[in-house]
């Protein structure tokens, strides 16, 4: 729209970064049949790989002013300046896939209208 507008809402864009995938990929351990030291090691490497991806996303988001907090087994990255669509587009442009993160957007009245 070309008309000037007055934003009537504040927003919080939240990127959820699960430290461990949900569901946890235990099948890595049992893929070859019974568990073995090697399959558990592969599982550990997979988790480390995931942690590395999360860390990389955090670095990318930190560059755009996101702040972080830990909640249960996930990192929450919050911004009150970057819009949700832009945040998603940005992460995709940085080489991340959209199944690696989750975007939440919450609006609130800027002042106490109706």
């Amino acid at each position: 729209m070309s008309e000037p507008y007055k934003p009537m809402v504040n927003h919080l864009t939240r990127i959820i970064l699960n430290l461990v995938e949900d569901p946890v990929p235990y099948d890595i351990i049992t893929r070859q049949g019974t568990p073995s030291p090697g399959s558990v090691r592969s599982f550990g490497e997979h988790l480390a790989g995931r942690a590395g991806r999360v860390a990389a996303m955090m670095e990318a988001l930190a560059a755009r002013g996101f702040v972080f907090k830990l909640e249960k087994n996930r990192v929450l990255a919050d911004s009150e300046t970057m819009e949700a669509q832009d945040a998603k587009r940005y992460l995709l442009s940085q080489g991340f896939a959209d199944n690696e993160f989750q975007v939440l957007l919450e609006y609130a009245r800027k002042w106490d209208v109706l």
């Binding site: 009537m8 809402v9 998603k88 975007v103 919450e106 009245r109 209208v113 109706l114």
Partner: peptide, 30 residues
């Protein structure tokens, strides 16, 4: 109303501008 526009605007990641316009229309008609 306004709460609906805000909740759905957040859920579908509508732009701030879209939510603001919806709120204005809700207020006027309400």
């Amino acid at each position: 109303g306004v709460s609906g526009a805000i909740a759905i605007g957040g859920a579908c990641r509508a732009e701030k501008e879209h939510v603001s316009v919806a709120i204005s229309l809700v207020i006027v008609w309400a």
